[in-house]
Each structure stands twice: as C-alpha cells, then as structure tokens.
Design a protein around this nucleic acid. Structure first.
Length: 154
DNA sequence: GCCAACGTTGGC
DNA sequence: GCCAACGTTGGC
C-alpha cells in the first residue's frame, strides 16, 4: 500500500460542523466546485488518508479535528440534481465533471487550533492554508499534520 | 486566447 | 456586512 498522505478540508461551521460529521460517521464531500480541489479528490486522495478538519466562517476559524478518506473517488450526485444549488447542467452521467470521496469522522480535538496560531507557528509557515485563499481541499505535509494534531490534543 | 465582468470564498 | 483575493465565464 502506498504511503499515507495528509490533507485539509474546509467546512463552513454553520453548514457542516465536525459534530455533524461525527453524528453521520461518514459523508460524501459534495458541493466542491473548484477544479484543483476536484483533481486532488479524484487523483490523489486514497482511502485511509487522514484529513485535518477546518471550520471556516467560524470565530475564530481553525482546525477542530481529523477525518479520514473513506471511499474511492466517484461522481458527486448533486451535479445531476436540478433541485440542488450544486446542479451543473453542463455535466452528464456519461461524462461527469465533479468527482468526490467520502470522508469519515476520525477524532475531535480537545481544543480548536486557530488559524492565528497556525500563522504564528514557525513550522507551519509553508502551509497552503497560510499562503493561499479559497482552496477548500488542500495537501498537508506529514510534519504539519503532526504539529497540528499535537497542538489540538494537548 | 485575452481580459473585463462577475461571482464566491472566507477572514476580519 | 465589508471587501480583497482570485477562479470562472463569455464577448470579442
């Protein structure tokens, strides 16, 4: 089996917080409509990879726990649903445009690791989270993952 | 294939 | 709620 990789996903706290993921146990990571994020889910994420779970639009924003990639990639069903805000009329079942994976709850931190702490930590300066806005699925280095989990479990 | 207009993300 | 960043769309 390939070496495990690490990721970070953003979820709006008032839309799908980690407590809801914990209650659901597993959920399709639907509604992602950014090609770079899609490519990561489609091509790079592997079942069993660990994922930092970040609350955006929170006060303060930050990492609140860990999820796990729980499926192979498959088409986002919402793109075919005309009722959904994520409906994509340019996509088709034969040639689906939007691909996702399932995420499963892994653990909730004892405390939130805030964006501000991450920005201030010397070992986390190169994180995509710190350097780029607007990417809701992003890769994380093993060291960065360990540092943040260490902070959240302390 | 350029680029202005537009829409969304997401911190503050 | 504001607005900067920045990805996407569509006219040309």
């Amino acid at each position: 089996m390939a070496k495990k990789r690490y990721w970070l996903v953003k979820s709006e706290e008032d839309v799908y917080p980690i407590d809801t993921l914990e209650a659901d146990e597993t959920t399709p990571w639907d509604g992602v409509r950014n090609y770079e994020a899609r490519n990561l889910m489609r091509d790079e994420m592997k079942k069993g990879d660990l994922v930092l779970y970040y609350h955006s639009n929170a006060n303060p924003p930050g990492v609140v726990g860990v999820a796990r990639v729980a499926s192979s990639p498959y088409p986002d069903p919402l793109q075919f649903d005309p009722e959904s805000r994520y409906h994509d009329p340019k996509s088709s079942e034969e040639d689906p445009r939007w691909i996702l994976v399932d995420l499963a709850f892994e653990e909730k931190f004892h405390r939130k690791v805030s964006l501000q702490e991450i920005k201030e930590h010397p070992e986390l300066q190169d994180m995509v989270l710190v350097n780029r806005m607007r990417l809701s699925v992003q890769p994380v280095r093993e060291k960065e993952f360990e540092v943040i989990v260490g902070m959240g479990c302390r």
